[in-house]
């Protein structure tokens, strides 16, 4: 190994250390038998599953987890489904208002939904009065809101991919007597499985991490998500609950990190392909 390569390794190791040390701290705090912030160290000094046990016995962690998975999973599936439908129309049909529709979607997706938190709160108060199942403090209501916030971005994302599928394929189907619906289901959807999966994954992760809307809308014990629940855990007892919190963080990370590593190849490829467009 020559000097240049050695320097490169030194730099890479330093950056890796920077990237890893907070994560290492979380692992060691989660294993720390004392469970407090003040006794947590960078490297584990003892190992016990006490924090994990406390997490399940003293907090409704499973409820939070289930809520988060339910909300994020449903939001991912529904928003991708709705977006795929509209993306198909924008990609394959030519109709009056198509251009306006696309530009509107583009502009709207630039405005983060949570900026309108005040009117959204007012709207959902009205919904609560009339249809409590979809109102404040309901996972269904928040899911609906998130879906509404994600369809604009995803329509563009998926339409971009549909455009790369040769139109001759579905034209052949149409000539053979298929309806556009059949062409959509049998040709377009199977061919775009990877992009649908990635869109769903991105929505899933974004939704799991969402805090602002969830903290305003979901305040009941039964409806909290992981973000709101873990936040409240530290708000009560910052020092004492840190070990429990760290254990919860690790359990939250497992699914996302796993899926992320699994899909990393696609994501890198996607980022690149998008990046070179400039």
């Amino acid at each position: 190994m020559n000097r240049g390569t050695a320097l490169r390794h030194a730099a890479a190791i330093a950056v890796t250390a920077f990237a890893l040390f907070p994560i290492l701290f979380v692992v060691s705090a989660a294993l720390n038998p004392l469970g407090t912030l003040s006794s947590a160290t960078l490297l584990p000094e003892g190992a016990g599953l006490g924090n994990l046990r406390a997490l399940f016995t003293t907090t409704p962690f499973l409820t939070w987890y289930a809520n988060s998975i339910l909300i994020a999973g449903l939001t991912a599936v529904l928003s991708v489904a709705v977006s795929a439908l509209s993306a198909y129309a924008f990609s394959r049909f030519r109709f009056a208002g198509r251009r306006t529709g696309l530009v509107t979607l583009l502009i709207i997706q630039a405005f983060p939904q949570f900026l309108a938190i005040v009117p959204l709160y007012v709207i959902f108060s009205v919904i609560s009065d009339n249809w409590p199942a979809f109102g404040l403090n309901s996972v269904w209501g928040v899911t609906l809101l998130y879906v509404g916030g994600q369809v604009g971005v995803n329509t563009w994302l998926i339409k971009g991919f549909f455009d790369t599928i040769p139109k001759e394929l579905d034209d052949a189907m149409l000539i053979d007597g298929c309806t556009p619906g059949q062409a959509f289901r049998r040709v377009i959807l199977p061919l775009s499985a990877p992009v649908l999966a990635i869109s769903a994954l991105l929505v899933f992760i974004a939704t799991i991490n969402e805090f602002l809307v969830a903290s305003v809308f979901l305040t009941g014990d039964d409806s909290r998500t992981l973000a709101v629940g873990l936040f409240s855990l530290l708000a009560d007892q910052r020092n004492a609950n840190f070990g429990i919190f760290a254990a919860g963080t690790l359990l939250t990370a497992i699914p996302t990190v796993a899926v992320f590593q699994f899909l990393q190849r696609y994501i890198v490829h996607g980022l690149t392909a998008g990046a070179v467009k400039g």
Partner: peptide, 19 residues
């Protein structure tokens, strides 16, 4: 971070063709 991914969505995709 992931919110950013979703927001910058345009870029995240195996992008359309016109490279």
């Amino acid at each position: 971070m992931s919110t950013r991914q979703a927001r910058t969505g345009k870029a995240v995709l195996p992008g359309p063709q016109d490279t």
